[in-house]
Nucleic acid binder design. Structure first.
Lengths: 346, 346
DNA sequence: TGTTAGCACTCGTTTGATTAGAGTGCTAAC
DNA sequence: GTTAGCACTCTAATCAAACGAGTGCTAACA
C-alpha cells in the first residue's frame, strides 16, 4: 500500500503526543507510553503501526534499532506550525517584567535578555534596533577648547551621538553660530539617503572658508545615522544550555558558547531575519534550519520588535530542539507587544 | 625529625619540576618522571622521600593514595612568586596586536579581550577605566525642541555624556546662554567630591526662576562623572575553558560560564583589585584566593592599566590552576605597557 | 648520613562479559 | 482494522578481573 502523503487526524494526534512527551522527558518515547498517554484508547501495537508509518513519512526517527522514537526536524516543524495556528490569537501577559522605562535603551535590552533567560531557562539574545531610515533632528556644534569642537547630533528616537572635532584655526562664537544655523537648516529632517554628494558640496560652498569643518561634521552625521557599529547583540543565559544533556557534551557546549560569543554571525543573522515575516513577526528555526551550523542541535525562536517607527530589533531564544515552543512563543509574543507599545506612547 | 619550615634548594627544584610537568600534562606526576625529567641525577626513591616532605609541608597533594602528586594552591603560590622575581625585568613584546587607536575606547577594549583570549587560550575579561576623580571640562545646554533641552557634559579624558531634559516652560535663547555661562563658570574643573550641596544651592539661587533646570543638570553632571553604569566588563574566550578537562565537566563549566556572564561580581572584584598592588600592577589569584567561589578551580591573573591620568582599568585572564603563568604574566605585562603608553602621548 | 634498589601494597582505571529492560516487528487471532 | 503475544535487537547498567602507575618501607650501599 502506498502511504498517503497527507496525514490523517489520528496520525497528527499521535505525532503531537510523541513530541509533547519528548519535550518533557528528553527520552525517546515508545509505543506503550503513547498508548497510555493519549485518550485515543489504542493499544501499543496499533500505535506501533502508526509510528512505523510516521517514521516512513519522516516525521520521527529512531536513534537506533528498537529504541523509542524522537521527532525529526520535519516533525517539529509540523508541530510548531499547527500550534502556531491554534495559538494565533492567544497572547499571555508576561509575568512581572519590571520594564521601567530605562533612559538608556541599551540597558533596557540587556535587562530584557536577562529576564527572558531566567524566565524561559534557555539562552537568549537581543539585537539593538536598527535605525534604517532615521532622520536628523538636531545638530549642535559647541566650542569646548581652543582647538576642539563638540558636535552633538540627535537623530529621531532621541538617539544622541557626539564627536569631538579637532580644528586648526580658532573659530569665534559667531562663526560657530552661523555654522550651527547652516547645518540645522539644511540637514534637519533628512535621512542618510538624502544627504548626498550634491547636498554636501552645496553646504560646503555656503560655509566658505570653513568647508573642512563641514566635511567633518557630515562624517559625524553619517556615522550617527548609519550607526552600524551600534548594531550590537546582547546575549544572556548561556549557562542554561547545560540544563539540557543533549546540548551539554563538551564538544557541543563549547561550540555553542563560541557561537553566542561570536556576535558577528548572530548580528548578520538577526539582520536578515528582519526581512522575512511569518507569524506576527515570530520565526522558528529548527535544527538545520538555523544559518549557524554549530546550532544544528538547537532550535531558535526569534521575534521582531519595534521601539519607534522604523527602529526594529530582534529577540531570539536558543534552546534544545525539544524546547517548549508553546511557552517560548507566547512569552516572546507578549514581550514583543510590550516593547512595541513601550516607546510608542511617549 | 622535625621538618624545617624552610625549603632547601633541592626541594624547590623538585617542586618546580613537578609543577612544570603538571602544567604540561594536567596529570598527577610521579617520582620516576621527576627522576628522569630533572638534571639532579637522583633516583626515584630519593625523589619520593623529598616529595613526601613536600607533601607534609603542604606544597603538593595526592589526589588519592598511590597516585602521583599535584601542586596545591600553596605550591602554585610559591612557584608564581619565585618566577615573578626571576622575570621581573623581562618583558616580551606582544606579537601582532593591531592596536590601531580606536576612537571608541570601548571597541578597543573589546578587541583587546578578544586578542588576548585567542593568544593565550584562556578566558579573558577587561574592565573599562574608572574615572575616579574626574573633573568637569565643559557643559553645554542646547534647545532641541520646544520642551526639550540637550545637556552635553564633557569630563576629563574627553568622555562625553548627554542627557535630554524635559522642561515645562519654554526658554528663550538668552536664558539658555545665561545658564550655560553660569554652569560653566561654576562647575568647570570641579570633581564630583567638590560639587556638594552648598555649591548646588548657591547655583540654584543664582539661576533664580530656573532653579529646577539646574537641579536636572546637576543630576546629569553627577551621573556623568560617577559613571557607575559605565564601569562595564567585557569578557571573551569563554569557550576556551573547554580546553581544560579539569574545568569542563558540566557542573563546573556551567558555573564558570555563569560567573563570566554575571558581570556584577566581576565588576566588584576588579573594582577592589585596583587597590592592592603587587608586582608592577600584576596580581595572581590561585584557586581559593579568588573572591568568586565558582572560580575556586581556576587561577586568575589581573593587570591594572592606565589610559590617561587617573583612568584605571583592569585586565584579567582566567584559566585552570595549571595555567602557563609565565606566558600569561609576560603577555599581560607587555599588553599593560602598550595600553599605558597608547594614550599618554596623545 | 644520605642515597638507592627492591618489593609488597594500594587504589583508580580499563576491559570484557553478563544482565536487565525497553521497545520493536511480525504473526496470528479477533 | 485492531490487538495480543512473542522473538528479537540494541543500549545501558552492573560487576569482576586484570592492569598499572605510584607509593612507602626496608635493607644495603657509599
Amino acid at each position: 500500500m502506498q502511504l498517503d502523503d497527507r496525514l490523517d487526524d489520528r496520525k497528527v494526534k499521535i505525532l503531537q503526543a510523541i513530541i509533547r512527551n519528548y519535550l518533557e522527558t528528553g527520552e525517546p518515547v515508545g509505543s506503550r507510553t503513547i498508548s497510555k498517554y493519549t485518550d485515543l484508547n489504542l493499544s501499543s501495537a496499533t500505535i506501533r503501526n502508526e509510528m512505523s508509518d510516521l517514521e516512513e513519512l519522516g516525521y520521527i526517527v529512531q536513534p537506533y534499532t528498537s529504541a523509542g522514537r524522537i521527532p525529526s526536524d520535519k516533525g517539529y516543524r509540523l508541530y510548531v506550525d499547527t500550534m502556531m495556528e491554534e495559538k494565533e490569537r492567544e497572547v499571555v501577559e508576561m509575568k512581572e517584567m519590571l520594564l521601567e522605562k530605562e533612559d538608556k535603551v541599551d540597558n533596557l535590552l540587556k535587562q530584557v535578555a536577562k529576564v527572558l533567560a531566567t524566565n524561559t531557562e534557555y539562552a537568549t539574545m537581543i539585537s539593538t534596533p536598527r535605525y534604517q531610515r532615521n532622520k536628523v533632528k538636531f545638530i549642535q556644534l559647541s566650542r569646548m577648547d581652543k582647538n576642539q569642537l563638540v558636535a552633538v547630533i540627535v537623530v529621531e528616537g532621541n538617539i544622541i551621538k557626539n564627536n569631538i572635532l579637532d580644528v586648526e584655526e580658532e573659530l569665534d562664537d559667531e562663526t560657530i553660530l552661523k555654522l550651527n544655523i547652516l547645518l540645522n537648516t539644511h540637514l534637519n529632517g533628512l535621512s542618510i539617503d538624502e544627504i548626498n554628494l550634491a547636498m554636501i558640496s552645496a553646504l560646503k560652498q555656503k560655509a566658505g572658508i570653513h568647508s573642512d569643518i563641514i566635511s567633518n561634521v557630515i562624517d559625524a552625521v553619517a556615522e550617527a545615522i548609519k550607526s552600524d557599529d551600534d548594531l550590537e547583540i546582547y546575549t544572556s543565559g548561556a549557562n542554561n544550555i547545560f540544563k539540557y544533556p543533549e546540548l551539554s557534551d563538551n564538544q557541543k557546549a563549547s561550540e555553542l558558547i563560541t557561537a553566542l560569543e561570536e556576535k558577528q554571525q548572530l548580528t548578520e543573522w538577526m539582520h536578515e531575519g528582519l526581512e522575512g515575516d511569518d507569524h506576527q513577526g515570530i520565526q522558528v528555526y529548527i535544527g538545520n534550519e538555523t544559518p549557524i551550523s554549530t546550532m544544528r542541535d538547537c532550535s531558535v525562536v526569534t521575534a521582531t520588535y519595534e521601539l519607534e517607527e522604523g527602529m526594529q530589533g530582534t529577540i531570539g531564544i536558543i534552546g534544545p530542539k525539544r524546547m517548549d515552543y508553546e511557552k517560548v512563543i507566547t512569552t516572546l509574543k507578549s514581550l514583543k507587544n510590550q516593547l512595541d507599545t513601550l516607546y510608542k506612547k511617549t
